[in-house]
């Protein structure tokens, strides 16, 4: 549980908050601190002491938190942590790898991009042929228009 020793975005201002913060003080926090609207079951949740969060985030040693009201929280989370550690050891069933390999397409993956993003290569012979075709087409259109105008 104490696995994030790199976190530097700490829970500032927890000094002296050795007791649980009330729901009222939670509600008084600026709106910007709340990321999404509170859900149904969260209305029943109580606010954990910032000390407990800091301990769970690996920012404080257990001894600091295991005092006063937070001792009960520490016991609870140590209990949960045993179960969480079990989940951390779960590995992919061995047959899944083979199953995935069998399900892959047989062909190599290709870049699927729209035609306007694809590379457009113009060779000199193609450019000359295109220019000649344009001249012929323009001449044909001009002749057709002249005939029509008469």
């Amino acid at each position: 549980m104490v696995d994030d020793l790199r976190s530097d975005d700490g829970l500032g201002g927890f000094e002296g908050h050795h007791h649980r913060v009330s729901r009222r003080s939670e509600q008084e926090r600026p709106l910007a601190d709340r990321e999404v609207p509170l859900g149904q079951q969260e209305s029943d949740a109580r606010v954990l002491s910032p000390l407990v969060h800091a301990w769970l985030d690996g920012e404080l040693p257990e001894a600091v938190v295991r005092k006063g009201d937070t001792a009960r929280d520490v016991e609870f989370w140590k209990n949960i942590n045993v179960e969480v550690e079990t989940r951390r050891r779960i590995l992919t069933p061995v047959f899944v790898e083979t199953k995935i390999m069998n399900a892959l397409p047989q062909t190599a993956p290709v870049v699927i991009s729209p035609w306007w993003r694809r590379e457009f290569v113009v060779r000199p012979t193609h450019a000359l042929a295109l220019a000649a075709a344009l001249v012929v087409a323009a001449s044909a259109v001009t002749v057709t228009l002249m005939v029509t105008m008469r």
Partner: peptide, 25 residues
């Protein structure tokens, strides 16, 4: 952001503890 994720984790912990602490605290 890190701040937003901390908020999510904190709220998840509080919700879980509210649900489970009566039995496991």
């Amino acid at each position: 952001t890190v701040g937003a994720l901390k908020m999510r984790v904190h709220r998840a912990r509080e919700a879980l503890q509210a649900l489970l602490e009566e039995k496991y605290a």
